[in-house]
């Protein structure tokens, strides 16, 4: 495989990883909650896309907004019903709670979908240029992932709700004084995080086999991206996503696919030692 091909593969993976991670990063940054459910959100989004395709023939790209909307609703309800009760508590409490909820989600998904992997096979052909081959579905997923991430960026920067989220992240108490209803912002933020996970999952269904057992793996990748890129900002998640995508692509070729994920984790641990706030860690969500 040519170096250029590996590079392109890494970039395709990276944009998907960025899209997967950006919601998690937002929730961590704003609510100060590590959402262990994020991997299951991704998988759930993937299954929504899969079932819509299989039973209703809905094209996976059309499913992306549907999965996103469904996860938004689920996220909003979960935050209001459960997460919000512990949002001010120490990390041991919040993390254990989302960890427990993830166990529940995992179990229910196994019962509902079984552990056997499924996938959508949709041959859209491939694009070839300068000796680099990219399947069209992957290319489309990459562009869609980047588009979604860009939309989130625009929402954060431009919309009223986005600015309110940024304000809460920077100073919760001041935001309260300014009349922002923090509880609602928390719920919206959590729901947005779930939305991005659902959308990313719906796109993943097109590229990778999906199974409830993969939620842990995706969650791991999301961790890595967030630590690499720093918390709570879109450019950081993009940078982190691309770094992880490239590392996995190159490590997969040169060190063997079984070591690709390990390299990601090692990179993350290494970075935590050098810069405990990530590559682009800074205050404010932009």
């Amino acid at each position: 495989m040519s170096e250029l091909q590996i590079l392109v593969n890494g970039l395709v993976l990276g944009s998907l990883y960025a899209c997967m991670a950006v919601g998690f990063s937002l929730v961590w940054g704003v609510l100060n909650v590590i959402n262990m459910l994020h991997g299951s959100f991704i998988v759930l989004g993937a299954y929504i896309s899969f079932f819509l395709y299989r039973h209703a023939g809905v094209h996976p790209f059309i499913s992306v907004p549907i999965a996103a909307a469904a996860l938004f609703a689920l996220g909003y309800a979960l935050q209001r019903g459960a997460i919000n009760r512990v949002v001010a508590r120490p990390v041991l409490t919040t993390l254990t709670l989302t960890f427990g909820l993830d166990m529940l989600a995992y179990n229910l998904m196994i019962l509902a979908f079984s552990a056997t992997p499924v996938r959508i096979i949709l041959d859209l052909g491939r694009v070839e240029a300068a000796g680099v081959v990219v399947p069209v579905d992957r290319l489309a997923a990459m562009l869609l992932a980047l588009l979604l991430t860009a939309v989130l960026y625009a929402v954060m920067r431009g919309s009223k709700i986005g600015r309110a989220i940024v304000a809460v992240r920077m100073d919760r108490d001041a935001a309260t004084l300014m009349g922002i209803r923090v509880e609602r912002i928390y719920a919206t933020t959590f729901a947005l995080g779930a939305l991005m996970a659902g959308a990313a999952g719906a796109m993943l269904a097109l590229i990778f086999p999906i199974s409830p057992t993969m939620s842990g793996q995706y969650l791991g990748k999301v961790f890595i991206v967030c630590v690499l890129g720093g918390l709570g900002n879109v450019p950081g998640a993009l940078a982190g996503g691309f770094v992880l995508g490239l590392v996995e692509a190159f490590a997969g070729v040169y060190l063997g696919p079984q070591n690709a994920m390990t390299m990601g984790y090692l990179l993350m641990l290494l970075l935590l030692l050098v810069r405990p706030t990530g590559l682009m860690g800074r205050k404010g969500y932009e």
Binding site: L97, G100, M103, L104, N107, L108
Partner: peptide, 11 residues
């Protein structure tokens, strides 16, 4: 239901 019950217990 092993994982699910653990999850509910945690909640």
């Amino acid at each position: 239901m092993h994982h699910a019950i653990l999850g509910l217990m945690i909640v």
